[in-house]
């Protein structure tokens, strides 16, 4: 006869693992926030001091918010994709936290990109909304973000919801290029080439420099927000672990009593 003890679910591993990460957050968060604020101040000042564009007038300045938002909207999805791979391949607990924390921020940047694009479009196209390829594909991206957040929230059990969301994120990632391509095909069929001025190397340096600085500022805003959101998510999980432990100690107490009878 062999006797072995069963280790009761301690939940301690779940608590202990992200502690080092939280310590790191305490160091990094103020630094990132400071960098973000400085870059934002410099970028905004430079952005507002550029001369008016010969075609678009002063509305061109919306670009300094619009384009970095769009970059971060895509960057957040990339963060979620790497998080999803982390969940499915390495099963790392922080990967899920990272993916989950990036989703609302990505959705917010996507919304910001859409809203600024629409405001920019009003003087340019004379209407708030056109079915332009970029706007349309970002609208689809927003729906995807919101769908994923809804999926996370609907599945009760955390480990399962993270795995299901990871699969949905990856399937979405495979489809985003296709959606982009089809939307471009759709818009060229309906209205001729896009009206939005493409950025790129042809841009004059006095526009390019503030744009890049704003891009960096948004990157650090994203990083700071992401760290904060991850910290909150970890705390939320710690609370849940404690609650579960409380429920469990109660339950085992009850079943011991049953055996005693």
């Amino acid at each position: 006869m062999t006797v072995e003890t069963i280790k009761r679910p301690s939940g301690l591993t779940a608590l202990a693992n992200p502690t080092r990460f939280l310590a790191l957050v305490r160091v990094l968060l103020p630094i990132f926030t400071a960098i973000a604020l400085v870059l934002l101040a410099v970028g905004l000042w430079m952005g507002f001091s550029v001369p008016d564009d010969y075609q678009q007038g002063r509305t061109v300045r919306i670009m300094f918010i619009h384009v970095p938002s769009v970059w971060m909207a895509m960057g957040a999805y990339m963060t979620m994709v790497s998080g999803a791979l982390g969940v499915l391949v390495w099963r790392h607990p922080l990967a899920d936290v990272a993916a989950r924390a990036a989703a609302p921020i990505g959705a917010a940047f996507t919304f910001l990109g859409l809203a600024t694009g629409s405001i920019w479009g009003r003087p340019m196209w004379g209407t708030w909304w056109v079915w332009d390829a970029r706007l349309t594909s970002f609208l689809v991206l927003l729906i995807i973000y919101l769908g994923l957040i809804a999926l996370w929230n609907s599945i009760e059990e955390p480990a399962k919801s993270s795995r299901m969301a990871a699969i949905a994120i990856l399937i979405g990632a495979l489809n985003i290029p296709i959606i982009r391509f089809s939307v471009e095909w759709f818009t060229t069929l309906h209205q001729g080439p896009s009206v939005v001025r493409a950025g790129g190397p042809s841009m004059a340096p006095e526009f390019l420099h503030p744009l890049l600085i704003m891009g960096l500022a948004f990157l650090f805003i994203f990083l700071a927000l992401h760290l904060m959101a991850m910290r909150n998510e970890i705390m939320r999980r710690q609370i849940r672990t404690l609650q579960r432990k409380a429920a469990q100690s109660n339950r085992t107490g009850a079943s011991r009593a049953e055996i005693a009878q």
């Binding site: 072995e4 280790k7 955390p158 469990q248």
Partner: peptide, 24 residues
Amino acid sequence: GEDLIFSDLSFNVSSGEALIIRGP
């Protein structure tokens, strides 16, 4: 989920044998 249900559990069963698992 997040719970460790059991750990380091060992057993063996051969053809013609039954293993009955009991517990609450």
